[in-house]
Design a protein around this nucleic acid. Structure first.
Lengths: 180, 180
DNA sequence: TTGACACTATATCAGTTCGATATATATCGG
DNA sequence: CCGATATATATCGAACTGATATAGTGTCAA
């Protein structure tokens, strides 16, 4: 699967036309955000390239009260390229966590730093859960959206539960050591 | 948190000396693998740089039956730099999944491609679970290792359960449509 | 015995992506 | 009127991946 920013843009635009800015925001806030991210520095060049290849069309749109924008739309060739790119066995998921790195090397940090990290992590996870719930309400829930929402919710809920237990354990231990 | 390959190497070497090759293998097979990855192309330059800065020491070791290797060990300054790097609030977790991208855009793929993708994903998840169980047995389980193992196991188990249900649902639907 | 393959080991490099920054326009609150 | 925030596009250095090169050693079947 050729999973790069190009394919991501094609995927996003398969649901409707949008500008580079709107793609970035849409990826951050919508269903894509659970498992993908992309920066302006990769989106804008990708859109220019895809347009040059005839997989997208551009249209300059003047706006009142906002800067003008370039609205991109997917072409028939673009849809074919998208279908081709995602009809391959997917690569393995990639997960990067500074938090777990910190937890594994906990002997190098103080208990209060550790507790702060856990609380931050719990907060991040709960925000993600809230965003999924929001997507469920706002977007029309076709089968694909329901799939990724259910999957994301299952994973995040399990993470929160595990972390809450770990947190209780840590507080208990710290209190016990302070009592000595 | 300055979480880059440099910090990763310092973290790995905090548990004992190793060569660049051993670091790569250790990251792939051990506890680090659940939440981090790094390539030779980033590890080797990082080790050279860290050594030049006095955070590591090198020692050439001749081997019989294998090519010679450069064994790196962390210095006192290296431990300090590591402690400094991980005593900061961690950045948010990053999760990339081609699989979920495919599932979100399921209308562009055929049911058999979808089923193959789900089976591959289930297989990947189960392999990860097996690796965690293996780490639990082989490595001496200090608190940090138990933390990341429990966390990883909770997340992966939830993923597998969710996916198994989704798979059953899909098979049921496909059979129903074929019967029409 | 030789050729294919796999493992150990280090190194480099093109291509991709991130994160920061620059630039511009417009709205809104103080 | 100033500063903050939002919309919008673009660029660029730094970091990282994935592929490739190089080289020594072991194994195993044809």
């Amino acid at each position: 699967m050729t999973m790069n920013v190009r394919t991501l843009c094609l995927g996003f635009l398969s649901t409707g036309e949008a500008s580079g800015y709107e793609i970035k925001k849409g990826i951050e806030d919508g269903m894509f955000s659970h498992f993908i991210d992309a920066s302006f520095g990769s989106i804008y060049p990708a859109l220019t390239q895809l347009t040059a290849e005839g997989l997208l069309t551009v249209r300059a749109e003047e706006q009142t009260g906002k800067p003008d924008k370039k609205v991109y739309a997917i072409t028939e060739n673009g849809r074919k390229a998208l279908a081709r790119a995602i009809s391959v066995l997917p690569a393995k998921d990639k997960f990067k966590s500074e938090f777990l790195f910190q937890m594994l090397l906990h002997q190098f940090i103080t208990p209060d730093v550790m507790l702060a990290a856990i609380d931050k992590q719990l907060n991040d996870l709960r925000q993600d859960l809230a965003r999924i719930a929001e997507c469920r309400c706002s977007e029309q829930p076709h089968a694909g959206a329901r799939f990724v929402a259910d999957y994301g919710e299952a994973v995040l809920t399990a993470s929160v539960r595990c972390l809450e237990e770990k947190r209780r354990e840590l507080v208990r231990q710290t209190a016990a050591q302070a009592a000595e």
